[in-house]
Amino acid sequence: MSPRRIRGSADRTPAPRSRKPTMADVAAEVGVSRALVSLVFRGQPGASAQTRARVFEAATRLGYKPDMAARLLARGRSKVLGVLFTPRNPYHVDLVEAVYPAAEELGYDLVLSAVVPSHDEHKAIEALVGHRSEALLLCGPNIADAEVASLGRRVPTVVIGRHLKDAGVDVVTSYDRPGAREVVDYLVGLGHRSIVHVDAGSRSGGPERRRAYRDAMRGHGLAPRVIPGNYCQEGGSEAARLLLSEDGPLPTAVFAANDQCALGLLDVFTRAGVKIPEQVSIVGYDDSHIAGLSHIDLTTVRQDVPRLARLAVQAADEQLRGVREAGQALKLESKLVVRGTSGPPPEA
């Protein structure tokens, strides 16, 4: 979609279409100096939040993108990639572990910044920028699309595990809808008819998995039921307690938003004496390292973490070398892994 052009005053003319817009064009559009625009794009102090927003908006309207290669040459290559992740999410931990060899192969070092209750995503991202990260790899970020797009205009950015459109950044993820459909098809094939989904709200991958679950259930002529949840163990625990408190029989299967959520379900159901999978089958998503442990043995959907990490690092490297423009979407297939937490329903 072409950016909407808004003129600030009659004497500011758009850059000629015969050449690429420059930083000077952006400065003229906003009515500030080129030096101030340079500070904004380098993420340096000296401009107010309002001015920064106006600079990025003007750059979008004019189609201007900073010359990353020139910027890196001018300041010297740091060869550092910044990685944003949530340490309580085992899938993110697996991704970080896989990013290391991929980065080392291309000659990059890593700087990690964790999202924890006292250190939100905004602080974590600014810490990465402050450590001279040449590019950012964001594992399942929850910041708004517009903020991701704004960040991508400041520094080459690759988003892992979240679906984005028209954000101007590279996206590396798995196809969530086929994976969720495969879960429902598998459970229905075992004979299940009462299948509940504990979702992840608006978090990365949550809407896609929820829609796919509903579509698959209706496709089989079954009534879907979604219980609000999240990607934490507490979300699964709360969903299990809710199901146990209700009158009537338990569902025969529960499809959890991810493996952490599934662990919460397993814990509460097991403590309540519910036999897994004899009474209730449980399926997770991600196939994080905890899923294959012998005492967990969780049926789940596997994402190819090593390949996702490798593609993300390669995407960042291509942006930095100026091989192509940002905005590419790279998606991989997922695969259902059947283990011990799923089986036929009690009546089958």
Rank of each mutant, 00 (worst) to 15 (best):
A98G: 03
F56G: 08
A262K: 12
P14A: 15
L190G: 01
G221F: 07
K331L: 10
D259V: 01
V99C: 06
E57W: 05
R214S: 14
R61V: 09
Q260E: 14
R307H: 07
S202F: 08
P344G: 03
K123L: 15
C232L: 10
A135I: 02
M1D: 14
E121A: 03
T13P: 06
V148K: 05
D215L: 14
P16F: 11
S202L: 13
V55A: 04
P178Q: 08
G130W: 07
V337Y: 08
A24E: 12
R324P: 12
A35C: 04
Q50K: 09
L106F: 03
A53C: 06
H197N: 00
Q279V: 13
R132S: 14
K65C: 09
T86N: 14
V183P: 03
A27Y: 04
H122W: 07
G322H: 08
E182A: 14
L298Y: 05
T86P: 05
A98Q: 02
S202Y: 08
L190C: 00
R34D: 04
P45D: 12
Q319M: 10
P249Y: 03
A223V: 15
Q314F: 09
L320Q: 07
S33Y: 05
L128C: 01
A316P: 10
L332W: 04
I282N: 08
P156N: 04
R19F: 10
A124W: 00
R75G: 14
D166G: 10
L137Y: 01
G322D: 07
D185Y: 09
L138H: 01
V40Y: 11
T252I: 07
K123F: 05
D11Y: 11
D109L: 10
R177E: 15
G130F: 06
A315R: 10
G248N: 01
V301Q: 02
A239P: 02
I143P: 03
D317F: 08
G201C: 02
R193Y: 07
S33I: 05
G322C: 07
R153A: 14
Q319S: 11
S9G: 07
I143R: 06
L110A: 06
T13H: 14
L81Q: 09
L62D: 10
V338S: 01
R132D: 12
D287L: 04
V196L: 10
V158L: 02
M68W: 14
R321S: 13
P141W: 02
V183D: 03
L243D: 01
R214C: 15
G76C: 09
K335E: 15
G168T: 12
F255R: 00
G284A: 01
R210D: 02
E325Y: 08
P90C: 06
P156T: 05
L138F: 00
R132Y: 13
V93T: 15
V313D: 08
E121G: 00
G168L: 08
L250E: 01
G140E: 08
G236K: 00
T13L: 14
G179T: 03
A70K: 12
A98N: 05
A291T: 09
H131M: 13
V116C: 04
S245H: 06
G264T: 11
S174L: 11
Y91F: 15
C232N: 12
H131D: 05
V148I: 15
R193D: 09
A272D: 14
A146S: 13
R7L: 11
L84W: 04
R209P: 06
R302A: 15
I125R: 00
H220R: 11
T157L: 01
A35K: 11
P66M: 11
L136Q: 03
G107I: 06
R181H: 11
E134F: 01
G292S: 14
